[in-house]
Every structure is written in C-alpha cells, then in structure tokens.
Write a protein that binds this DNA or RNA. Structure first.
Length: 582
DNA sequence: CGGACAAGCTGA
DNA sequence: CAGCTTGTCCGG
C-alpha cells in the first residue's frame, strides 16, 4: 500500500504552520479531515487537527516523516475547516488555530452518539420569520420583550437548526425551553458530541457558530445587535458573519433576529426584512420620558432631575439608574482656585476612584486629593461618577440605593433593595424594574465612536427588556440636552427604522462599515504594514493617529485579500478587522 | 510556542 | 575560554 499522510495544524499558540505525519495503516479508517490527534513536534507531544489527508508531499523528505502519535477523537468537519480558512482570511488572522479551537469539543470525543431527530410540531411559529426562511432568510425585527421561541420554531420546521445567542445563560435557558417543547436539543459546548451526532436544535453562545452539525437546515442568530457576538481579541471574528457564511455554504436559510438590527445586518438582508406591525412594535417598547436638561437652571449641575426624584420617592417602584462613569467623580475642580484637576504626567483630566484617590484614566498615575495648583484639599465635583452619585440618589430617594459594579456580586444586598445605580452592567444584573433612568444619555449619543448611535439604541433596547412591554407600565427615563436626537426619536416612536436611514447616510459619507470594510492596525509593526498596504490600489490607508492606521476597502473580501497579500512585518502588528469600538 | 544553536559580551 | 545573555531559526 502507498503511504498516506495527514496534514496537521498543531495546537500551539504562535505557531502558524502545518506539518505532515504518516497515518499508520491500522488508523486509516479513523483519520480524516477534522480528526483530533496527538503528534510529536520538536521533541514534545502536542495536540493538533488533521486538516487534510492524502499522498505524501514531494517537498517533504520521506526520512523526516514520523507517524501520528495518537488518534484522540472527533473534531471540526471538513466543511468547518473550510469555513475556518475563510474566516482566517476574512479577519486577517493568518492562522487557523483560533477557529479550529472554537470548532472543537472541550474534551475528547472518541465516538459520536446516534442521531436524535424528532418529527413533531412543537408550537406556534412566527409567520414573518417563516416567510423569510422560505425565501432564504433575512432580518427579523421584533420588539425588545418579544419571545424568540416562535422564530426558533419556524426555523426548526425547516430542518436541523443552529441557534447562536450572545450569552451562555440565554443559550441554556432557551435550550431548556425547546427541550420542554419536545425538540431534541444540544447546548454547546457541553453537548458537543450530541450536536455532532445530529439533533433538532443546536444552541450556544458566540462559539456555537462553529458547532458541529451533520446537516445544517437553518441558522438563527438571536440579538444580532449584541456586541458579545464578536470576539474582542484579534482575530475579532463576529458570530453573526460566521453564521451567515456558514448558512450560505450549506444553502440553508439564515435569520438574524433583533429589536434593533445593526446596519451590517440590514445591509446583508437588503429587502428581506420582517418587521412587526406598528401596533405590535409600540406594545413591545416602554414609554419614553425625555427630561430636557437644557431647561436646568444654569447653576444646577446635578444629574438628579425632579422627574427622577419623583420616581425615586415612589416606594412602590423599582428604579435602575444608569451612568457610564465608574468611581466617585469623573471631573473635579479646586474649590478655592477653581483649577480643573489634571494629571501631572500627561495632562488628562483625573477622576476620583472609589477609594478616594485621584487617578488619571489615560496613564494610570494616582495622587492624593490635593489641588495641583494651590495645594488645597477641598475639591468640587463637576461631574459625578456612580459611587458619588449613589449618596446623592439615596438622599433624594429617602430609601437605600445599591451600587452595582462590574465585579461585585452581593446578591443579598441586591435582593433587599429597590433602587440601583451603576454603569450599563446594571442592566444585566437587575432582572426587572419599573423605571430605568439614563442620567446622561448624551455620553452615549455623543461618544466618539462611529457606532455610537447604534450602541446607544442597543442600550435603550436592553433597558426596554428590563422594563417589559408597554402594558407593564414601565418607564424609560432619559436625561439629555439632545431631546430630538434620532436615537431618542426612534425609541419614542418605538420604531428603530427611524435611525437606520440617517445612520447609513453618515456611514456612507465617512466611508465606514457596512458601506466600506474597515481594519485598524496597531503595534510596533503597524507602520511597516501600513506602508506596504499604501502600494495596494484596492485599499485606502489613513493615519497614523495615536499610533494606529485605518485601512478601508470596498468590502470584507477585498480587505481580506489585501491584508493577506501584504508581507507581514517581523515586529508585532495587531490587525483588527471590523473593529468593534472605534 | 519552546528548544537548539550561533553570535556577542564579560570576567579572570 | 567558560559562562552567560540575546537573537534567529525551525519543527514533518
């Protein structure tokens, strides 16, 4: 018999090469593209993935070939390996490993269970979603508090369905409900083997876009707008885009579901959008109360307005206050000499931390609470942070106010209280409220990020979910100096579509996604890579600004091709394609 | 990534 | 010239 070799991607970080190994005759049946193996490499044993099997490469001297050391079990299928190669190019990763890792079981899977596919009618389906699924898929817009299950059931009626959600908790909860409805369900990564064997529904968080399925009948991405769907470390792959491409390759319909679909999703869908009726959508959003801060008396700097005080004082109501400013104070001035307090090293404004020190947000330098100009220790707060605000709110409310921070998890204190204050993390921690107040929504509306408008709307949709449908009587209170901003207008009319048009026009004007594809280069080698890309007529390079370069291309494919073609510098470069926060 | 090996520096 | 650090290359 002629020898058979396996091309293996070793599971070793920073090693983006593939190596050939002999497949022992006894294992020929067990080894194919996607098999997880162990191999000897440079004197040690490492895990790896077989990405291809075939005759020996004539460029590799036969004497160097060593046999595979062990067959561990099942891994990503050939189709997923191809998808990983696509993603590697799409997000300029230059390696397969991060994607193969996402597509692999958490533990060895020596054998797959038999398929467990049911044939039932588990419940009513969403008509709009069903229509889209029949036509290849699209965007399904549904109000914030709408139940996703009818959409999922519409997809499950088409065939084995892959569902991607932003969080593991959401996936588990949904999995349990679908199981109760009579479907066979695999929640990945836990039930990886069952998913690979074949079930009605595979559900999981971001990495579920890479879950194993013998047949992909339909794909659903829930809360498509949620930034948790994007990997934050490079390669910054987005589960929505992976899911869309996977569905396309499988010729399966894909639906992206969200109360506030992103421009990326709408751009992909074109006219394949299902929106609720005006009445349904209005019923699914809470009433918006806009507090116009331009009416504040000029001497009044407080973020606690009278409509907010009214809500705080009502003992019957659970109130959540959101301010994206951690710490005691964000901006301070000296009481005696009026000097704005800045960092002595880098001149940025200093903030006061929870433990009372002054800290520079840019360089991290800390100093005690002393005016750098006159030495006075009496400072006035120009702009409070969450910790400082808590006391002010408590005084106004006349009842306990609990600060919720990103890390603290004092469930007991949470349960006893009815007024909460925190950064946006508070919206993930408090399940239900009667009032959600954004103390300074302008922070979000005016944030210097190109997706600021979308992200502000996402925040408001999250609050809407905490408040429940309009019939529950919850109130979304926003304090602003921009009462007619498109984002607030969209929420006021419970019509996210009002933002899409103007926002897309701005993106077009500025050459930003989804109109053009974008990458950010940073790190020591950024300059060199940017220089190489400047000779490529298919991309436009801007910068440097803050040591970073922006690279634009007509679309993600062109961007990926240009980044793959440019020689990688020896020094480190971080390439962020579709940068989530710019 | 981690090991092997070569080149360069230091101290006696 | 041993002993050590730093850098570059390579693994099948």
């Amino acid at each position: 018999m002629s020898p058979v070799v396996a091309r293996v991607v070793p599971d070793v970080t920073g090693l983006d090469k593939q190596f050939d190994y002999l497949v022992p005759d006894a294992w020929r049946e067990d080894v194919g593209a996607g098999t997880v193996v162990r191999v000897g490499l440079a004197g040690r044993r490492v895990g790896g993935w077989v990405v291809a099997v075939g005759p020996p490469d004539p460029d590799v001297p036969a004497a160097k070939l060593r046999p595979l050391a062990k067959v561990t079990g099942h891994g990503p299928s050939a189709a997923l390996i191809d998808l990983a190669a696509w993603a590697s190019r799409r997000w300029a990763a230059g390696r397969l490993r991060p994607f193969l890792l996402a597509a692999s079981p958490p533990r060895a899977v020596p054998a797959l269970p038999a398929p467990a596919v049911t044939a039932g009618r588990p419940g009513p389906v969403d008509a709009g979603a069903a229509r889209l699924l029949a036509g290849g898929g699209g965007v399904v817009r549904r109000p914030p508090s709408a139940d996703p299950v009818p959409v999922v059931l519409a997809a499950a009626a088409v065939g084995p369905t892959l569902i991607v959600t932003p969080s593991v908790d959401q996936a588990r909860l949904l999995g349990a409900r679908l199981r109760r409805a009579g479907l066979s369900v695999a929640v990945v990564p836990r039930d990886w083997a069952a998913a690979a064997g074949g079930v009605d529904v595979v559900v999981g968080a971001r990495a579920a876009a890479w879950a194993p399925m013998p047949v992909v009948g339909a794909v659903v991405v829930l809360d498509e707008h949620d930034e948790a769907l994007q990997e934050e470390r490079a390669p910054t792959w987005h589960a929505r885009d992976v899911a869309v491409e996977r569905a396309r390759r499988a010729a399966a319909p894909c639906v992206l579901v969200s109360p506030v679909p992103t421009l990326n999703a709408l751009d992909w869908a074109g006219d394949r959008v299902s929106a609720p009726t005006r009445n349904e959508e209005r019923a699914g959003w809470p009433i918006l109360e806009v507090v116009d801060r331009r009416n504040d008396e000029p001497w009044r700097r407080s973020l606690v307005s009278s409509p907010l005080i009214k809500a705080l004082r009502d003992p019957e109501r659970t109130v959540v206050c959101v301010l994206n400013a951690p710490g005691r104070a964000r901006r301070l001035a000296c009481r005696s000499c009026r000097a704005l307090q800045r960092c002595e090293r880098c001149q940025a404004a200093v903030a006061q931390t929870r433990d009372g020190l002054l800290r520079c947000a840019r360089c991290g330098t800390e100093r005690p609470v002393v005016c750098q100009v006159c030495g006075s220790s009496a400072l006035v707060v120009l702009r409070p942070g969450v910790s400082g605000l808590r006391e002010e709110l408590e005084a106004a409310a006349g009842r306990p106010v609990v600060e919720i921070t990103g890390d603290s998890a004092d469930e007991a204190a949470d349960a006893a209280a009815a007024v909460f204050v925190g950064t946006e993390a508070v919206l993930h921690r408090v399940p239900r409220a009667d009032v959600v107040a954004f103390l300074d929504i302008d922070d979000e509306l005016l944030a210097p990020r190109f997706r600021a408008d979308e992200q502000a709307l996402v925040l408001l949709a999250r609050a809407a979910r905490v408040l429940g449908p309009r019939a529950d009587g919850g109130r979304l209170l926003v304090q602003t100096r921009l009462p007619h901003h498109e984002v607030l207008d969209a929420v006021l009319h419970a019509d996210p579509g009002r933002l899409s048009g103007p926002a897309l026009a701005r993106r077009r004007e500025l050459g930003l996604p989804p109109v053009r594809a974008l990458a950010v280069l940073s790190g020591a080698g950024a300059e060199e890579l940017a220089g190489a890309l400047r000779t490529d007529p298919t991309v436009a390079v801007a910068g440097p600004a803050d040591g970073r370069y922006l690279v634009r291309a007509a679309d993600p494919d062109a961007l990926g091709a240009a980044l793959a073609a440019a020689p990688r510098p020896a020094s480190r470069v971080r390439v962020e394609v579709d940068p989530p926060r710019i």
